[in-house]
Simulated scan of single mutants.
Amino acid sequence: MRVTQGCFSFLPDLTDEQITAQIEYCLGKGWAIGVEHTDDPHPRNIYWEMFGHPMFDLRDAKGAMMELEACRKAFPDHYIRINAFDSTRGFETVTMSFIVNRPKTEPGIRMTRTEVDGRSIRYTHSVQRA
């Protein structure tokens, strides 16, 4: 199963050139860049681990690509994503987020639907490792 979270997740994996182009777009908008990783792609796991600090003063995509490459070396079998933050209002708001690294084998996520009292429906997610 292919995890689909963030922008471009239904497209084939982005090349480094395409990732660089997206980072340049974000920097052109004045957005800060952050790199995050996780080994748990569960839909409710919204708190991925930050790799390094957000790059608020970055002006060149090469700096973000160096940070991404360091994260790939440290965590080759994790999901890694790039986040772009818009801090123009005095607080960081994720404006754009996309996955740039995936493990060789992605786990499946199973969703179970259960009807409970009062015609309510509850959903349970579980990760199925290969």
Rank of each mutant, 00 (worst) to 15 (best):
K104D: 06
L27T: 05
T20N: 05
H42F: 07
M1W: 14
N45Q: 08
G30T: 05
F91V: 09
S126D: 12
D40H: 05
Y25E: 07
I121Q: 10
Q18L: 10
D60Y: 12
P54R: 04
S97A: 12
I80N: 00
K73V: 02
G28P: 08
V3M: 12
P54N: 01
E92V: 13
F56N: 14
E17D: 15
F75V: 05
G90S: 01
E17W: 15
H53T: 10
P54Q: 09
F51E: 00
C7I: 08
C26D: 11
Q18N: 11
P43A: 04
T124L: 12
S97I: 02
R129G: 00
E106N: 09
I80G: 01
G118T: 02
F85L: 10
P12W: 12
D39W: 07
M65K: 11
R89H: 12
E17C: 13
R119A: 14
K104W: 00
G28V: 09
P54S: 09
T15A: 03
A130N: 12
L68D: 02
P103N: 02
M111N: 02
E92S: 14
G34D: 08
D57T: 14
D16V: 01
D39S: 10
G30L: 06
S9P: 05
K104L: 02
R44F: 12
I121M: 11
S97L: 08
I80E: 03
I99W: 02
